[in-house]
Design a protein around this nucleic acid. Structure first.
Length: 887
RNA sequence: GGGCGAUUAGCUCAGUUGGUUAGAGCGUCUCGCUUACACCGAGAAGGUCGAAGGUUCGAGUCCUUCAUCGCCCACCA
């Protein structure tokens, strides 16, 4: 039997308990064909570095759900994993080797990838340790990495299927190009920032019929003058009278002096700028489309790092923004710059490195999304997948319905290599296994595409690839579709939407039933936590400082699903204090139990079986039942925060503040009858709390087993209370009255300045509730520190001079407090209360006198209001009597 | 240009089928005897639930408009 220290010490408790859970194999998934499984595939953290608070939140919520279901007896699988995070990891490792003064090109592809793998090994183990510190009860034996063989096979199989069905294609398209990462990125990887910039008005000379520059100009407006060198046309709206005369003519491109046509295209908005637009199909998405329609040549005037190339004439080799300055100056010199205006526009930045993205035409691989999106829309519409909070379903729909093709090729080294080979005959083909020859011409001169896939491609397959797909494994059959996906709303499109599409495409089934989206965790000022701001908080630091349970409790209850929330020390202190409260409430029990063993009450399920128990016992047992029921309901609705709050309130404000104090009254008299009830409520609370606060509850559980019979060997596998059994409304009502009386007396004592320790005389006037109150005499005397305590049936039996009083709906308190009475204050207080009561009475009279209310409101509401009116009336009456006695 | 969210006590936030006199934590003010806990206990003060309309017997909760802040989506040069 071990002593419990005075304060809960997370540091000394957490690691041994986690080891115990692991050693006993409690985390291991055990399928049972007769039961409905509950499964979660953990969102794999990136191997870019440490876990952040978003991961901690995901881990908390998922662990909570898993522990809850495990205790309910459901077969549970929680499968952990790690993501190779292509571009992000490559960037991190590039920065690492830059410290040694080398670039990836110095190393070469193979050596560089070796360095990445070294990095991965290091970071993976840290992520695992961090997760363990958070108390996650996932099945570690099943941990998967996105670059493992299984996911590799799934990636290549999926690619080949899509390729063979024509849903993957390769084409020269305009894509977002990051000149720093030197790769194409998808639309989603571009962050748009409203930026104050300039709009330059430039005059292009029009050529006359002989092909010589005329005095006539066409005026264009541009925000990116450096792209002038790649213009292949000028476009105007066909209905624009100002420019009708120019359509079909030829303009002379300044500086480059190329002849370009003036064309008409509906896309051009006459209201903007001059109504004439320079067309640069190689460097602008809209212009690319116009170019396609008019068969314009495409000129790309920049290299991979966005330096101007040979197409840029005098600017060859110069950076794009430097070129912008130079060309503006040159145009001015030529007299072709008409004016400059301030102009705000939205500039795309690489979400990985914040470099300004350049739209550039290049050869890339794309997935045709429309056919994949349709079924994905369907499953959310018909409820096969539920997204919470529900408002995100609209966001999802909007994106799906306007979906654009997905650029999946990346000019990177780290990632899944595109499984396409080119034959020197000009053929290309996709393969699952590495081929040795071209399937068509049998040539051995084949070469694999050098590019890798967008990291989200493998992520999209995660729920089924981790379970063995494309093999039809037992795991896949049993655990798929998974139950819940928990992640941040910021990756709804990146990940959730794509998992739904690819899951349906590959398996014909949804990947998960429920999507639970959490908000962003912000700092105390509401700012996003970013490395550049330096306000990123490491979950481990918080765990060291407050304990894991405190962090989990705070994350789980501190906010609402889908909404951002601020995290700061005061919030975590609340969690820490709660853990300590639980610890000490248990400590009180353990001390009270002493050497003896306590039996749990063997029949507490029906109100009758508890009929002759003391009021406070009946009350707390009844309240425990409702709490258990409510917690299960809330968890079932994923209202994790409300479940946590409810448990907090129940445990602290009802069990600890009231029941334990009431139990002390009997215990002090040497009556040990509260012990079974204390044990019962305590162990039930521990079960209920365990999913949210696994460590403190398990630690206490192990202590409790020394004192209480019939407890399972470990709380993590103990049964979860569901609250079956009958409540005892009568006991709840009577206990409420007792507590009200105690509170009223305490209030008088405090207001009149009665010494805290002093016992004083009190009269409780009550008719209907006298038996209840008489039964609670020891509790009242002790908790309110009143003695002698008189129960009388009528106010006339209580003294009226020099008294302080309080009027409750079912009782009045009269306390003779010679020397402490301030008549004016007393009158004031009672008058105010009377005014409140009278206002209440007239409000209720009005309400109940309203025929509409009587005929339309439900009966129980009417009955309640009637009761309310009656008791408020008698309360007002009592107050008037008291006041008149005061004179 | 569309869409979404937030606006509730000094601060940070709950409040999910509309139904008693709107809650919590922190902070503030009093007081602290106790078989757990000062990471505590008792008592108190503090809110016209962003504004204006509307629906309803009844609105913090539903509808409309507006304001402020924040976010997402969008190829207007």
């Amino acid at each position: 039997m071990q002593e419990m220290p005075k304060a809960y010490d997370p540091q000394s408790v957490e690691a041994p308990l986690y080891r115990m859970w692991m050693d006993k194999g409690y985390f291991r998934a055990k399928p049972d064909p007769d039961k409905t499984p509950f499964s979660i595939i953990m969102p794999p953290p990136n191997v870019t570095g440490e876990l952040h608070l978003g991961h901690a939140l995901t881990a908390t919520v998922e662990d909570l759900l898993i522990r809850w279901h495990r205790m309910l007896g459901d077969p549970t699988l929680w499968l952990p994993g790690v993501d190779h995070a292509g571009i992000a990891t490559q960037n991190v490792v590039e920065r690492e080797i830059a410290k040694e003064g080398i670039s990836r090109h110095d190393l070469g592809r193979e050596k560089f990838l070796e360095r990445v793998w070294q990095w991965v090994q290091k970071v993976r183990s840290r992520i695992v340790i961090q997760h363990m510190r958070l108390g996650v009860s996932c099945d570690w034996e099943r941990e998967v990495f996105t670059m493992d063989e299984g996911p590799q096979l799934a990636v290549r199989t999926t690619f080949k299927r899509l390729f063979d069905e024509g849903l993957i294609y390769r084409g020269e398209r305009i894509t977002n190009w990051c000149p720093r990462c030197t790769t194409a990125i998808s639309d989603l990887e571009v962050d748009h920032v409203e930026t104050q910039g300039s709009l330059w008005y430039v005059k292009y000379p029009l050529l006359d019929d002989e092909g010589n520059p005329s005095a006539d100009y066409i005026h264009v407006a541009t925000t990116r003058p450096e792209t002038i060198v790649a213009d292949t046309a000028v476009a105007v709206n066909p209905n624009d009278d100002r420019w009708k005369h120019a359509i079909g003519k030829t303009a002379l491109l300044p500086i480059i002096e190329r002849h370009i046509p003036v064309i008409a295209d509906e896309e051009v908005q006459p209201e903007f700028g001059t109504g004439a637009v320079k067309v640069t199909p190689g460097h602008d998405p809209t212009d690319f489309d116009i170019g396609q329609r008019h068969n314009l040549p495409i000129i790309v005037a920049m290299d991979a790092e966005a330096k101007m190339n040979e197409h840029a004439g005098p600017y060859n080799g110069i950076d794009r923004f430097e070129t912008r300055k130079l060309i503006v100056a040159d145009l001015e010199k030529l007299g072709l710059l008409e004016k400059r205006e301030d102009h705000v526009s939205s500039i795309g930045h690489c979400s990985r490195c914040d470099t300004i993205v350049e739209p550039i035409v290049s050869k890339q691989w794309f997935v045709k999304m429309d056919p994949l999106a349709k079924p994905a829309i369907e499953v959310v519409r018909d409820g096969r997948i539920e997204i919470m909070p529900q408002r995100f379903e609209r966001v999802y729909m909007h994106w799906m319905e306007n979906i654009r093709d997905w650029c999946i090729s990346r000019q990177l080294w780290w990632g899944h290599r595109i499984p396409v080979w080119y034959c020197n005959s000009g053929d290309m083909f996709a393969c699952v296994e590495e081929p040795t020859e071209c399937p068509k011409c049998k040539s051995k001169a084949i070469e694999q595409d050098p590019d890798v896939l967008d990291t989200w491609f493998s992520s999209a397959l995660w729920p089924h690839s981790t379970l063995g797909w494309p093999n039809q494994t037992e795991d896949l059959r049993y655990w798929y579709p998974t139950s819940v996906l928990e992640t941040g709303y910021d990756i709804l499109f990146f990940w959730v939407a794509r998992m739904i599409m690819m899951g349906l495409y590959n398996t014909g089934e949804v990947p998960f039933r429920h999507v639970y989206l959490h908000g962003l965790i912000r700092d105390d000022k509401g700012q996003k936590m970013t490395k550049s701001r330096g306000n990123v908080v490491d979950p481990l630091d918080l765990i060291e400082k407050f304990g894991t349970d405190a962090v989990r409790f705070t994350l789980a209850t501190g906010g609402t699903p889908g909404n951002d929330f601020r995290l700061f020390d005061e919030k975590l202190e609340q969690g820490r204090n709660f853990a300590n409260k639980i610890w000490n409430a248990a400590r009180f029990f353990v001390q009270s139990a002493g050497e003896g063993r306590v039996q749990l009450p063997h029949d507490s399920h029906t109100a009758e079986s508890r009929g002759d128990w003391p009021l406070e016992d009946r009350w707390i047992v009844s309240r425990t039942l409702s709490t258990a029921r409510e917690v299960n309901r809330l968890l079932g609705e994923f209202q994790v925060n409300e479940a946590g709050r409810l448990l907090y309130d129940f445990f602290w404000s009802e069990y600890a503040d009231w029941y334990v104090e009431m139990a002390k009254v009997r215990l002090r008299d040497g009556d040990n009858s509260p012990l079974p009830i204390l044990a019962h409520v305590l162990q039930t609370s521990l079960r209920l709390l365990h999913p949210i606060m696994p460590f403190v509850t398990e630690a206490i559980w192990q202590h409790l087993r020394d004192h209480v019979d019939g407890l399972e060997e470990a709380l993590i596998v103990a049964a979860y209370p569901t609250g079956e059994g009958a409540n005892d409304p009568e006991a709840e009502e009577n206990a409420a009255l007792v507590m009200d009386v105690v509170r009223a007396i305490r209030n008088i004592r405090a207001e009149r300045g009665v010494d805290a320790g002093r016992f004083v005389e009190a009269f409780v006037v009550s008719n209907g509730a006298s038996a209840t109150l008489e039964g609670a005499r020891p509790v009242l005397e002790s908790l309110a520190r009143v003695r002698p305590l008189h129960f009388v049936a009528d106010v006339s039996e209580a003294p009226s001079a020099n008294v302080a009083s309080a009027v409750l709906p079912e009782a009045q308190i009269v306390m003779p407090l010679a020397g402490l009475i301030d008549l004016a204050a007393e009158r004031d207080k009672l008058s105010k209360q009377l005014a409140d009561a009278e206002a209440q009475v007239s409000r209720l009279e009005g309400k109940l006198g309203n025929d509409d209310f009587r005929s339309k409101a439900p009966a129980n509401v009417i009955a309640r209001e009637e009761e309310n009116l009656a008791s408020t009336r008698s309360r007002a009456e009592a107050l008037r009597t008291r006041l008149s006695e005061l004179g």
